[in-house]
Every structure is written in C-alpha cells, then in structure tokens.
Design a protein around this nucleic acid. Structure first.
Lengths: 226, 226
DNA sequence: ACCTGAACACCGTTCAAGT
DNA sequence: ACCTGAACACCGTTCAAGT
C-alpha cells in the first residue's frame, strides 16, 4: 500500500488543509478553552468557530445549537470528576461533592452551565451512579435515592454557582469589597424590624466559603441518614 | 389654590402627555408584565421601554443596567411572599419554602432571576429575617444560622429553577414526553456498569415534583435539627 | 432632571449554495 | 457529508444632544 502523499504544492486549498478537520470533540475542546481563557460569556458560536478557523454554521452542523454545545461541554467537565475510593457512604458522598466543586472552581464560571442540568451524559452518569450507590447504602429506597440525588447535585451545583458570582451584582468593585459593603449595610438596618439579620450581618457576609460548603454538606448528609 | 388644568388642546405633545411619567416602579411593573406574558427571555431593555412608550436609554437612566432591573424585579417578587403564622420553627420554614416556590411558579421562569441572588432587598429581607428567626429557634448559632439560610434559599431557588425548565434541554417535545424518553434511556443502560441508575430510572424521571420538593425540604429540616 | 436618535459591537440561527 | 457567505432579527450599552 502506497503511503499517503501531502497535497501537491500547487494545491490552492492551503488554508483548508492546514487545519485539522473539525469534529464534535474539537468543538467541545475549543469551547472549554474559551471558558478557561475568558469565561462562559465568551463561549459564542462565532467565537468557537473562529478558534477552529471555521465558519459559524459549521458549528451548528456538528452540535445542533448552543444548548447542544453546552450539554456536551457539561459532560466533558463531568469527565474530570474522579471516583471516590470505597468506604462509608458518607465519605463517598463528601468526596464526590468536593470533587465536583473543585472541577467547577478550576473552570471559572463553569458552574453556571450545570445549573438546571442533571449529569446524564456518558461521563455524568458515572457521577450519578456513584451518588445513587452511596444513597442506596445509606438505606434509602430507590425513590428516595432518586430524590436525594437531585438534592445532592442541586446543592453542589447551586453552591458552586453562587461562589463564582459576586454576591450583590449591583455593587461595583471586587468581591471582598462588595461583601464588606453588604455586611455594613445589613448591620445598619433597624434592629427592631430585623433583629436576626442585623445580628447575623457578619456571618452572612463572611468571605470564606469553604466552611459554609462543609456546613451544608454535613447537614445534608445528616438529613439523609436514617 | 387653583386646580391643575389639563394641557391646552393645542398642545403638540399629545403622545408625551398621554402616558404616565416613567418611574422606577413603572419600569419594574413593565418587566413583571413582560415576564408573566412571555417569560424571562422577553425582558429586554428595549421591550421594557416599548411597553412604557419610551426609548431604551430612558430605562438605563432609571435602573442603571439590566442587572439593576432584575435586582429590583427580584425584590418585587419577594414582596409577594407571605409571612408564616407563629408556630414551631419547622412549620415556619416549611411554610416559607412553599410560599416562595409558589410565587416563582406563578411567574413562569421567574426562578431563574433568583438563582445566584440572595434576598437582600427591602422585601427580600423580610423573608431572610423570617428564615433566620426560625433557624435561631432551631438552636443554631448566628454563624450556623447564616450558613443555613444560604442552604435554605439555595434549595428553594434551585429546585424552583429546575422545575421551570425541561429536564433535558436537547430533547424536543413537551416535558412529559421528554421525561419519559429520559427514563427509557436510563433503563436501557448496561446494568452491569450502572446498576443503580437503571434501577432508579423510573423515579429519576417521574414527572410529579411536589413529592420531591417535600422530600428535600424534610431532609433539610431534619439535617438542621439538633 | 429626564428623555431621545443614532450608533457600536455584538448575538443565535437559518438557508441557499458550494464541494 | 461537510462547509461557506450572507442575511435576519435581534441584543446590552453608550453618548452627544435635546428640553
């Protein structure tokens, strides 16, 4: 069998042959690069196309529409979530939650893609299976395990989303500044009308979110224990 | 004091005097009408302006930008949330959760506005105060109550959001159809790789969400009990 | 103080047409 | 089967200018 020759030097399709052929995989990768470099808002059908040296309608041919692209990108992110090692179901659930949060944190505002989605793609299903297995070991029925899985992913996802955006969108400046101003605002509220808000002003506007994530996760796990 | 006369009949500013003067309140109301009539995607600075018979930059003058408009609209929605009557803290929390979910359900995909926001506006603070008061009565410290409040609002909000959108965006057809296809898909997965997913296929794709909401709420409250 | 016209720099999506 | 040019119908936002 003769070896494939490169296109002849007089080929006029220099640009077309220069780039790798477009594929669904390449498109998802380009979207992921865009996400990492500039954030979710930079993921545009046109920008993705440009990264691949291709026209926008080509992207539509491969992934249908923007939602289809984000579905695939979400599953791609799910592929980065590691599996927990064997152990008590509580530990496996905690590991999974922290792993998912870490993946989101590693990709800017990736969590926004996950909000309203459930991990049902090829890779997402692995995480779903892991969660359901842990919940079954917790003694939950199939029905309760399904409900609990939604509760679990909903918590991790919405928490991750919350921490990627500034706490009060209307306020300018960086996050720490904005948070401090929220705390200041809350503490100066009339304490007659809002006794608890004023007393909780500081903890409500605390910047460190690791403790808060662990708190919610612990209470969730406790609530799921029989 | 003489009574104010209407503009003379020869006034050439017929259109300008015909409409009520624009105000922040009127703008928020127009946005709410748009939300109820056509959904969140219809809330556009231009569309809001058109509803008021005004040009788009006028809206900017009053609310700053679109985020500022949505902040105000969110607080307007919070004003529709009723206060619970006195009773055990669990009941008050449950009442508040159901009330918030009902308000979102009454305004199409309003929950999407709430995702990533925390009720800190004049009206939202009433709900926050109610939640914090209940959580304090549960025996939580100020710090834990603050964390739990985020957990609580995050749950109600993200659940409400989830139920306003179709479960698998890529699938066509109405929700019941799409859900059934998801269930079908999950049940035909290789049961060797996904034993729990296949067994939970039916409950994972069950359409009624009231039971699921109650389940999560119960477990949350249980997890917060000392 | 409040409002407008016109513009800038984009979007998602479709569709006939090419190879 | 895969890709392009050109277009449609929009966006959020700004800014000089008006009253």
């Amino acid at each position: 069998m003769s070896q494939a020759l490169p296109p002849p030097i007089w080929s006029h399709r220099t640009r077309a042959t220069a780039r790798a052929p477009v594929s669904e995989e390449a498109i998802v990768q380009a979207a992921l690069d865009l996400l990492d470099d500039e954030g979710l808002d930079a993921i545009t059908m046109r920008q993705v196309a440009e990264r691949l040296g291709v026209s926008a309608p080509t992207v539509y041919w491969h992934v249908g529409n923007k939602d289809g692209l984000l579905d695939r990108l979400y599953d791609r992110l799910c592929s980065e979530v590691p599996q927990p090692s064997p152990g008590p179901w509580q530990d496996r659930l905690r590991f999974l939650a922290n792993a998912i949060r870490s993946v989101f944190a590693a990709h800017r505002d990736a969590a926004r893609i996950a909000v309203g989605r459930f991990p049902l793609g090829p890779n997402g299903l692995r995480a779903t299976e892991t969660a359901l297995a842990a919940l079954a070991d917790a003694g939950l029925s199939d029905e309760d395990a399904a409900h609990a899985a939604y509760l679990f992913f909903g918590y991790v996802t919405s928490f991750s989303y919350q921490e990627t955006i500034s706490p009060a969108p209307a306020l300018a400046g960086d996050r720490a500044d904005a948070l401090q101003r929220v705390g200041q605002y809350l503490s100066t509220l009339p304490s007659g009308d809002f006794p608890h808000v004023t007393r909780c002003a500081a903890p409500l506007s605390r910047p460190g979110l690791d403790r808060r994530f662990a708190f919610g996760l612990d209470r969730l796990i406790r609530g799921l224990s029989t």
